[in-house]
Every structure is written in structure tokens, then in C-alpha cells.
């Protein structure tokens, strides 16, 4: 069996002395693994976050298979001296590798991931990153319901998110429970809205909370260290 696709390298696990088991988030095949034997040339660019053209072949579809890669764009190269942005790139790849089931095709998540990685060198990188985590939650089936207030059904003046249900709560209904609810940043409701650093920090807190509570705990995994470090750097 053979297939070709384009994808984002999520990481590699050493296999023997000269090979890796490569995890790639492909456009049409989802998260797919395969054996990859790097040489002097490929070792330089087969890095986490690189977008590549890949060809996979094996005798049977359930086999591990072998990857052949063609060089694409090495996004990590421009970020090596930018700690926070580099952490964001690694965090994206780590979270996908930890949470994304194999062969689950998700064009929306693929597009969002590619866009977020491409935008890591721009000014709005941190806001894009938080919105990417929100999409990740949605695509994994744990999206927040921010369409209407869980208590009153109102669609306006949504101010909080319930940490129990992930549903929005309006300002008036949530005020008595202010301490217990998570404050909803405006850019979660409308992505075009300008986001101040405090809003972004709040966004990171919300997505981080639900990723840990709903997704990572399911896989018995901890939040990656780089993701934790991101909260400190953005502060």
C-alpha cells in the first residue's frame, strides 16, 4: 500500500540507531506514523514543525510502514532565537502528538495548524495560538459552547465560561458565581476583535484548563512543559 500527502512533522522517536518513528499530521490521512531513515541531508530539515511532502509505503495498511520525505518549509529555523514563539511551535506539535488519534482526518484542524505555524513570525502569533487551542478542543470533540448563556439562554453579554460544562454564562447570571467561573475573553466570541495581553492570558488559562481536564487526563498525560512555560513568558 502506498500514499502521498503533505503534512507537518510533529516529532520523532528514535528507533534503533539510525532510524526514527516519525509522527506526521497529514492533510488527508490525519496523524500517521512511519519509519524514517534520515541521512546527512534530511537530518537538517526533518525537524518538528517542518511542512513536508511525504510518501508512505508498507505491504499492509496496518503495518508501521516507511516514510520518504521531500523538503518543504522549515518553520523552526526562523524561530530558534525566539523563545516564546519556539515554545508555541513545540507546544502545537506536542499537543497534537499527545491528543490526536491516528488517522483521524481533520481538514479544519490541519488548516488551522498550518495557518498558526505560518503566523508564528507575525505580531498576532499569541492570539492565533490561543485560538488554535480552541479549535483543537472543538475538533477533538470537546469544544466549548459559546453560543448562548447556559442559565438564561441569552445570546448577548456573555461574560463567563462554566469550568464544569464549558458553556458560556451571561454577565448577570454569572455575577453571583464570579469567583468560580472563568472569565470569557471577547476574542473567543469574535476572532477579529483586538485582544489585549490580559485577554490572551485569560484565553490560555481557559484552553489550558479544558485541555487538561477533558483531553490530557483522558490520555493520562500531563500538560507539556513548553505549554506551561508559555503562560510564564506571555505574562
Amino acid at each position: 500500500m502506498e500514499w502521498s500527502d503533505s503534512g507537518i512533522i510533529l516529532g520523532h522517536t528514535p528507533f534503533g540507531e539510525n532510524a526514527y518513528i516519525l509522527s506526521i499530521f497529514t492533510e488527508q490521512r490525519g496523524h500517521a506514523k512511519g519509519l524514517f531513515r534520515p541521512n546527512k541531508t534530511t537530518r537538517g530539515w526533518a525537524e518538528v514543525g517542518t511542512v513536508v511532502s511525504c510518501a508512505w509505503n508498507a505491504r499492509l495498511p496496518e503495518h508501521l510502514g516507511n516514510y520518504t520525505l521531500e523538503e518543504g518549509h522549515v518553520y523552526a529555523a526562523a524561530l530558534l532565537s525566539e523563545p516564546a514563539r519556539l515554545h508555541a511551535l513545540l507546544s502545537i506539535c506536542n499537543l497534537l502528538r499527545l491528543t490526536l488519534p491516528e488517522h483521524q482526518v481533520s481538514p479544519v484542524l490541519y488548516e488551522a495548524t498550518l495557518h498558526t505555524i505560518q503566523q508564528l513570525t507575525t505580531e498576532a502569533w499569541l492570539k492565533n495560538y490561543v485560538l488554535w487551542e480552541k479549535i483543537l478542543l472543538e475538533e477533538l470533540g470537546f469544544g466549548m459552547d459559546l453560543t448562548a448563556c447556559a442559565a438564561t439562554g441569552l445570546t448577548e453579554n456573555l461574560h463567563y465560561v462554566s469550568p464544569k460544562t464549558g458553556r458560556a454564562v451571561s454577565h448577570s447570571a454569572g455575577l453571583p458565581y464570579h469567583e468560580k467561573l472563568l472569565k470569557l475573553p471577547a476574542f473567543f466570541l469574535d476572532a477579529v476583535t483586538h485582544a489585549a495581553l490580559s485577554d490572551i492570558r485569560q484565553g490560555l488559562k481557559i484552553t489550558g484548563y479544558f485541555l487538561e481536564k477533558w483531553v490530557l487526563s483522558l490520555h493520562q498525560q500531563q500538560m507539556p512543559t513548553v505549554r506551561r512555560m508559555m503562560s510564564d513568558i506571555s505574562a
Binding site: G44, H73, V74, A76, A77
Partner: peptide, 10 residues
């Protein structure tokens, strides 16, 4: 490769 050239330029 492209990555090495990017880091070299930077």
C-alpha cells in the same frame, strides 16, 4: 537546506 540558510542569514 532552507532551514540552515535561514538561521545563517538571521
Amino acid at each position: 537546506d532552507e532551514g540552515t540558510l535561514t538561521t545563517a542569514l538571521m
